Computed example of a mutant assay.
Amino acid sequence: MPESHDPHQAMAPTGGGGAMDLAMTEAETLQGSTGPTGAGPEAKARSLWSDAWHQLRRNPVFIVSALLIVFLVLIAIWPQLIASGDPLKCDLGKSEQGSAPGHPFGYDTQGCDVYTRTVYGARASITVGVCATVGAALLGSVLGGLAGFFGGWWDALLSRIADIFFGIPIILGGLVLLSVVTSSTVWPVVGFIVLLGWPQISRIARGSVITAKQNDYVQAARALGASNTRMLLRHVAPNAVAPVIVVATIALGTYIALEATLSFLGVGLRPPTVSWGIDISNAAQSIRNAPHMLLWPAGALSITVLAFIMLGDAVRDALDPKLR
């Protein structure tokens, strides 16, 4: 028998997508509709984040760097897992001695166990890196996102303020600002890094938001009467956050190295805090007689910074469609 034709079906539009579909989707959302929008599991699988996670799981660079970072975070939280000694317990009679049973990395100038101090040094360095990155990312994303979305005088004011902070040499700024701080905790260093680190992330967030707000779905939401808060949180921010995540991940390793540099110069973390930068500074005076004092904390620092930079590169490759 010949196939029957439904006149209502013949009158249905055949083109999917476009501005009309975007407008209908936004209208249903604004009215509080919770019904299906035609996006099934296959559509979710094609989203940016799903594709990124699919690629990351198959990237050996990401796997190696992620496992290494997980290990470093674990020993930063629970250094007793692999080190049973006390990093502040020293014996001057063993000053600058080499490897010994139970002390594979030898002793430093004060007779402290280098292995134990290297393990415990991960706590301060990673704490500074993570807290500074979170603070700079939040502050920079909020200020840069608002500037990019609203523009006008707010954008101009933020850009001028960011230019002022960009003009401050970060090492010189650390020497000036941290030299008057007497606290031996990590928070003055974290505050300093956030103070000089947010402008970079704010510029990335600003540019990403400016690009995202020009897309058709944002214009459709605006035409249907969506508020600025709704457009910013629901449509712009989720599509502008990827570059911020990439920059923040790479910056985390940079901030760890910056903390070590400031501690090496004597204005970062201070004793009795155990830090790789402090141990490297102490070892610099005895590098010829006891090179092992410098080798192990410097090696741990280099591996940690490299792991976070590798992770950032892997995330960047996964989130950038042009690199696929």
Rank of each mutant, 00 (worst) to 15 (best):
A52V: 11
C112I: 11
A52D: 07
I193K: 10
S50L: 00
W198F: 14
A12E: 00
V267E: 11
A76G: 15
P7Q: 05
L301D: 13
S47L: 11
Q219P: 05
M1W: 11
W78N: 00
L139N: 09
V189I: 03
T229F: 13
W296K: 01
D279P: 11
S95A: 15
I309T: 14
S125Q: 06
D113L: 00
L139E: 08
L252D: 09
P79M: 01
S159P: 09
P272Y: 01
L74F: 14
I126N: 05
Y255L: 07
R117C: 03
R288N: 01
N215W: 07
A242D: 10
M293I: 02
A83P: 06
T25C: 02
G40Y: 03
V130F: 15
P60R: 02
G140N: 13
W53L: 10
F62C: 06
P243K: 00
A19Y: 02
G40T: 00
I256F: 14
V236I: 14
R324W: 13
R117M: 04
E28Y: 06
P36H: 05
A314M: 06
I201N: 02
L195Y: 11
Y115I: 05
G191A: 08
Q200K: 08
R270A: 00
H54T: 14
V246L: 09
P60L: 09
L177P: 05
V315K: 00
G18F: 13
I75R: 04
V236F: 03
V236M: 03
V73D: 12
G16E: 14
R316E: 14
R230Y: 13
N289K: 02
I210T: 12
G32I: 05
A27H: 02
A300P: 07
S159Q: 05
W276Y: 09
G144N: 01
E259V: 00
L295S: 01
W276M: 00
G102P: 08
P2N: 06
V218T: 03
H8A: 00
P271R: 07
A100W: 13
